[in-house]
């Protein structure tokens, strides 16, 4: 089932074009949103989360038009949103914060609400920290707490803006488990700089660059864009789009290979570089443990 269908979305801030002719659709499962800084990812997420209106185009979310007040309310009742910079009331306990968000989501009956708060805290593994003040929680715990708040009410559409930023490898793995589990039943839109997140979590990926959709497809299709354009050698080679020494001591190159080059299987990152790197010279998405 298509949960989100965007057609020719556009948004301008004064003379700056933030989004232009953006079209994509989201179904049950995890969809990754990749793009360099300033590509418009957060703006797009805010539009889908009904925090911002688009200037143009059409948007249908869970069968509703968020441009109308009833449609927007209907969407918000089935939406979970984790902003890039989730704010907390630091004097609240973990339980109180999620309880506050549950009230914002119209769960007013006390015992039912508290049961729901306990459920989501348990889902993110914060059962034993429910009485802890937020200011005493680590960065990873706060991020899980923000996810718990997004999951209140069992939303059908979950929007996560760079949820794995600042997490250590173990925390990131735990987070991936949570999101992967969520994606089995719900529609999840995940903005990230981590290609590992996309590889391990996403059934679909959308690449946004300078406000436009440059790619929409599966992660393997994204990697396939670099087929025949990735090779290794013992020496650094000029003229490649990107070139770096790997942990094995070999140099890995992305670009137009010289005759006789030792071609290798491309990764998502290679596909992303082929798509975006040449056009913008922008930074590539980060790898969790890559030697770049």
């Amino acid at each position: 089932m298509t949960a989100v269908r965007a057609t020719s979305l556009a948004l301008r801030y004064g003379r700056t074009t933030a989004l232009e002719d953006v079209s994509f659709s989201l179904r049950t499962g995890v969809t990754g949103l990749l793009g360099p800084n300033g590509a418009g990812k957060t703006t797009l997420l805010r539009i889908v989360a009904t925090a911002l209106p688009a200037d143009g185009g059409t948007l249908r979310i869970l069968g509703h038009d968020p441009g109308t007040p009833p449609g927007r309310l209907a969407v918000r009742r089935r939406l979970g949103y984790l902003p890039q910079d989730p704010g907390f009331h630091p004097s609240f306990t973990a339980f109180e914060f999620v309880d506050y968000v549950a009230i914002l989501k119209e769960l007013t009956h006390r015992s039912a609400r508290h049961a729901e708060v306990a459920r989501v805290l348990s889902a993110v593994g914060l059962d034993d920290r429910r009485r802890s003040r937020i200011r005493t929680l680590s960065g990873g715990m706060r991020q899980r707490l923000a996810l718990a708040a997004a999951l209140v009410g069992d939303p059908d559409l979950v929007i996560l803006d760079e949820p794995t930023v600042g997490l250590d490898p173990e925390q990131r793995l735990r987070f991936r488990e949570l999101i992967a589990d969520l994606g089995e039943r719900k529609t999840v839109l995940l903005s990230t700089h981590q290609t590992e997140d996309v590889m391990s979590l996403c059934q679909e990926v959308v690449v946004l660059d300078r406000g436009r959709v440059r790619f929409e497809g599966t992660p393997s299709e994204l990697a396939g864009l670099a087929a025949g354009r990735v090779w290794t050698s013992t020496q650094r080679q000029a003229g490649a789009l990107a070139s770096w020494r790997t942990g094995t001591g070999l140099h890995r190159h992305v670009g137009d290979p010289p005759p006789g080059a030792a071609l290798v299987e491309p990764s998502i990152e290679d596909g992303y570089l082929t798509l975006v790197g040449a056009a913008t010279g922008a930074e590539a998405p980060a790898t969790a443990g890559g030697a770049r």
Binding site: A51, R77, L79, P86, G87, H89, V101, K105
Partner: peptide, 18 residues
């Protein structure tokens, strides 16, 4: 100033009531 401003904006609770 309100740290949860963005979460509140997309919540179904009526902003005017809040």
């Amino acid at each position: 100033i309100d740290p949860t401003y963005e979460i509140a904006v997309v919540a179904p609770v009526r902003s005017f009531r809040l």
